[in-house]
């Protein structure tokens, strides 16, 4: 399988007042297409920052990030936005659905950036809702849905434009155990049946167990090699 993500010597620093905070330090990572990776580590270890960089939401201070053929570290904001619309689906801990739109409209939202007709958008959104098992909830607004249902809508929204990469930041962090298991089951299905590459940040070891591979981070570095079966993942340059 071809390489989807490649991070080379990636560093990220923030200024907190006058103080410079190093969040990521020389991170090297290579991920093949179709992998399902859990990224674990204590709070402040840099997992979400790495996820944001790979998702094109933030820019590294130094180093190179290439995802699906695009050099994210040198792309401008406009091309990054366009790339995100086509190549990445995002799933957040708190769902981040737009409360004024119903589930169907929320799922259609990314498709507004495409040339699809209204009926095509509607059809695709309905299909995505069907995949996550919410075809009968399209007319409901987020406030009328349970947490698990809202997260399913968020996953449908992430899927609807058929991106190659799903970026999930604590997707089960706001859910009870049973619902969390259902969401993880859904992510696994998307990985297995649709071949989606999934990068998931989690604190939950049970959630991480659902992934093929688990990476650990601490103090801005990848600190362990991969836990999982035969690896398409190449964490060779991770620092122990």
């Amino acid at each position: 399988m071809s390489e989807l993500i490649r991070c080379t010597n990636v560093c990220k620093e923030y200024l907190r007042g006058a103080e410079k905070v190093e969040v990521l330090r020389n991170v090297d990572l290579s991920v093949k297409r179709g992998a399902f990776i859990a990224l674990m580590g204590p709070s402040g270890s840099g997992k979400t920052t790495l996820l944001n960089l790979i998702g094109g939401l933030d820019a590294p201070t130094s180093g190179e990030i290439e995802v699906d053929g695009l050099r994210l570290d040198s792309a401008n904001a406009r091309s990054l936005a366009s790339w995100r619309a086509q190549s990445v689906g995002f799933v957040f801990q708190f769902y981040n659905l737009l409360p004024v739109l119903n589930a169907q409209r929320n799922v259609e939202l990314p498709l507004l950036l495409t040339d699809l007709s209204r009926s095509e958008r509607h059809k695709n959104a309905a299909l995505a809702l069907d995949i996550v098992g919410l075809s009968d909830r399209g007319k409901h607004k987020p406030g009328e849905l349970s947490g698990g249902q809202q997260q399913r809508v968020a996953i449908a929204r992430a899927l609807v434009s058929d991106p190659c990469l799903l970026v999930c930041d604590e997707p089960t962090g706001d859910l009870d155990r049973t619902t969390a298991e259902e969401i993880l089951e859904l992510l696994q299905t998307l990985h297995r049946e649709l071949g989606k590459t999934i990068l998931m940040v989690t604190h939950d070891p049970k959630a991480a167990n659902r992934a093929e591979y688990t990476l650990h981070m601490d103090k801005g570095k990848l600190v362990s090699t991969v836990e999982g079966p035969d690896l398409e993942l190449e964490p060779a340059r991770t620092v122990a």
Binding site: A77, R78, S82, R84, N96, P110
Partner: peptide
């Protein structure tokens, strides 16, 4: 603010 950020995340330009 979070909703607008979400829209940008989805690919809507500034």
């Amino acid at each position: 603010v979070p909703e607008l950020a979400t829209m940008k995340t989805l690919g809507f330009s500034d």
